[in-house]
Design a protein around this nucleic acid. Structure first.
Length: 322
DNA sequence: CTCGTTAATCCGGTACACCG
DNA sequence: CGGTGTACCGGATTAACGAG
């Protein structure tokens, strides 16, 4: 199963931090480091530019790198005057006898922290990729994963008593989650530029009579109306659309969907969801015309967010739920 | 590796013919 | 008429492949 809830260990790790951290004193760097060091954070992969971690030289190299990264984080910490914090005291500022111990785990966690920090500080993607020796596109994956982690943390904090007492801090975490994923969308926008230009005049024409893009009638579970045209759907596919529409703009995890749509099936998998999603998109495309522009458009509306789930990406006014 | 698509297969409902 | 066998159809699921 691809999209999962956070691990129990991560949950406990989050919980204790939520209790321990001090109000109004959390920083972006701290959150990123904290997430990188969580059990789930450690598992989110960064592809190496070179394989062969086992070989001796490489380890040497990593060890040096670890020191470099550690120092870099330390510098940032000192700049922000946060060197007293427990997290840094435990992980970054070492006591003498520990100094020689190198762990790949820490090395990777530091690397992730720094590169994601650069990422949300809006450094150029290309520069980051070069600096950290990464394949093209691998940061996006990592950022999506961490966005999900940050959101999980925020949700946990919310159901503890942060909502009333530490709203600012909560917002801060949510913002990080958003910024981690926003970058991805900004890049996507450039690609979609062509679409927008073509659609623009149309949108203006329709402005007087705002017509919903997607119309769902719960009394007619056999079809949906997309841009005024009927698309036939099977009952299950309809339920999927309906569920997504009820959670407009929210990412629903595959597990979540499986639990509600296939509640009594134990061995349902995410493949079933993607399959039905595919059927939905196909049904819509055959009614509105199957071409590249529509394809992109439909794909963007029934949007799959990598490793997190599916969402209906549509403005409120453009959806009509009857 | 993740996602999307296609083709093959499975499964449940049902229409219809046939028989006691 | 009521029960039963079967052929068939729509929909769901699986497997396998392909793209990125």
């Amino acid at each position: 199963i691809i999209t999962k809830a956070i691990k129990v260990e991560t949950y406990l790790y989050f919980k204790s931090w939520i209790k321990e951290s001090k109000k109004g004193e959390i920083s972006n760097l701290e959150i990123l480091l904290f997430l990188s060091l969580s059990p789930d954070g450690k598992e989110l992969p960064i592809p190496f530019s070179l394989s062969g971690i086992n070989d001796c030289k490489r380890e040497r190299h990593n060890c040096d790198q670890e020191k470099i990264y550690r120092c870099k984080i330390l510098r940032l910490v000192c700049n922000q005057g946060e060197e007293d914090k427990k997290l840094y005291q435990d992980k970054i500022i070492l006591k003498k006898d520990e100094e020689k111990v190198f762990t790949l785990e820490n090395y990777l966690a530091f690397k992730k922290t720094l590169l994601l920090y650069d990422w949300i500080e809006s450094k150029k993607v290309k520069n980051i990729e070069e600096e950290y020796n990464l394949y093209r596109g691998s940061i996006q994956h990592l950022a999506e994963g961490f966005s999900w982690l940050a959101e999980s943390l925020a949700n946990l904090a919310e159901i503890s008593d942060w909502k009333e007492e530490r709203e600012e801090d909560l917002k801060k975490i949510r913002l990080i989650s958003e910024r981690l994923i926003k970058r991805v969308e900004e890049e996507g926008l450039e690609l979609a530029h062509l679409d927008i230009e073509i659609c623009k005049p149309k949108a203006e024409n329709n402005h007087l009579q705002p017509e919903p893009i997607l119309q769902i009638d719960k009394h007619r579970p056999d079809r949906i109306i997309f841009l005024g045209k009927e698309a036939k759907l099977t009952p299950l596919a309809f339920s999927l659309v309906y569920l997504l529409a009820q959670n407009l703009g929210k990412v629903l995890s595959y597990n979540n969907l499986l639990d509600t749509l296939w509640e009594d099936e134990e061995d349902a998998t995410y493949v079933q969801i993607t399959f039905h999603l595919s059927k939905i998109r196909r049904a819509i495309l055959t009614t509105i015309g199957d071409n590249q522009i529509n394809k992109e458009r439909v794909k963007n509306i029934f949007k799959v967010v990598s490793r997190r789930g599916v969402m209906l990406n549509l403005e409120m006014e453009k959806l009509k739920l009857i």
